[in-house]
Simulated scan of single mutants.
Amino acid sequence: MAERSNFLRLVSWLLWFSASSIALASNVPSPISFNWDAIKYVYAFGDSYSFVQGTEGYANYSFIGDSFNLAFSPGQLLSDHIIPRNTSSDASNWLEYLTGCFGGLPSACSRQLWDFAFAGADISLALLPQHHNFSVQMVDQVKQWATYAVDVIPHPPEETMTAWWIGINDTGDTLQNASITDFPAFWETEMGAYFQAVQMAYDGGLSGPQLFINVPPEERSPGFVNDATWGPILKEHIDQYNTALTNHINSFAHTNPGSIVLTFDAHTWFNHVLDNADHYGFTNITGYCECTDPGYFWYNTGHPTDHTHRLLAGAIEQQLREASS
């Protein structure tokens, strides 16, 4: 009962946070309404927390393509299979649990998952270097979709939700970047690139509901939890990034008054679960195990386990249902 009580309190707070953003988008009557049960297509842009492996993707990094091979034919996209249990958790991730699309052709799923996220992605190559020379940054994921996929796969507004989860690598990659002297200004520059890409996707056809997820408390991951030097700096970066993100989400909603804007506060959710680990079945929240032990929150130094992704998807889905009209 304690677990359920804590979870419901968290959901209530998250619903308030989401509703505040939705209200910003309702200055004029929206041409569409949000109903999670009506969503048949989920598009995703982001990093390793969101990528799924495809038969046409770069091994362990993407569903389709890489920076050297952004182009693909309609036939390649439509025949691309999701490879089951091949994500950053070495099993399924939150998008697969949320959509029920765990493998095979996305078009064969009752709720189709079209995932353009790339493991290791930052927001823009103009702002931060690639993790690998084959990495596809988030703004280029959107360009890839707009150039090669927009006319190939469906995206009717009433039935399509677009998920955005980026910034985990950005906040970490800036830790020892001596070229950045004004971090609040840097995050504003990043948000400019971020929401230029969001606007491009929105204007280009992904005009259904937009789901934005902020950066979780990575300073509590095994890679930083015991780092007295860089852990607090990472926390500061994440707090600054999330503040800038919230401001730009609100600005996007005002600029696009017919939009449906949804948010999920992953930062609060991660902290809540980590602070109440025993209620969620976790026995280890500071170490990691590249195994299937459900007692571990972390699969490796910076990525959650399958069990964590399953719980996260459940929390997001409950919020989406509560936000449904």
Rank of each mutant, 00 (worst) to 15 (best):
V139C: 10
L125T: 13
I123V: 15
Q210R: 08
T174M: 10
I233C: 02
Y241H: 15
V139K: 01
F116A: 03
I168H: 09
E159G: 00
A193C: 12
T174S: 11
T162G: 03
T171W: 04
P209D: 03
T160W: 08
P157Q: 07
I168V: 13
D170W: 02
A185G: 10
P232L: 08
N250V: 06
F134D: 13
Y202I: 05
A149F: 05
G167R: 00
Q144M: 12
I123L: 14
M200N: 12
V215T: 09
A244E: 07
F183T: 08
S221T: 13
N226V: 06
N226M: 11
H248E: 15
S221G: 05
S207V: 08
F134E: 13
F134N: 13
A185Q: 14
L128S: 10
A197L: 11
L211T: 01
A126C: 10
G208V: 05
S207E: 02
F224T: 08
G223F: 09
L206K: 03
A197C: 10
L206C: 03
V215C: 02
H131A: 14
A178W: 14
I166T: 01
E159L: 04
T181R: 09
L234F: 10
M138N: 01
A193Y: 15
S207I: 09
F252P: 07
Y148W: 14
A185E: 15
A253E: 02
T229P: 01
D170L: 05
H237W: 06
Q240N: 10
A201F: 02
E188M: 11
Q199M: 07
D239V: 12
H155K: 15
A228V: 12
V152F: 06
A126P: 04
V215A: 06
F183D: 08
P222Y: 06
P222C: 08
P257V: 06
T243K: 01
F134L: 12
G192A: 15
Y241C: 08
S135Y: 08
E188H: 12
S179N: 15
N256G: 01
T171G: 07
W164R: 01
T181K: 12
A244N: 03
A146D: 15
I180Y: 05
T189P: 00
I213Y: 00
H254A: 14
L175I: 07
A253S: 09
A149I: 07
Y241E: 08
T171S: 12
N214Q: 02
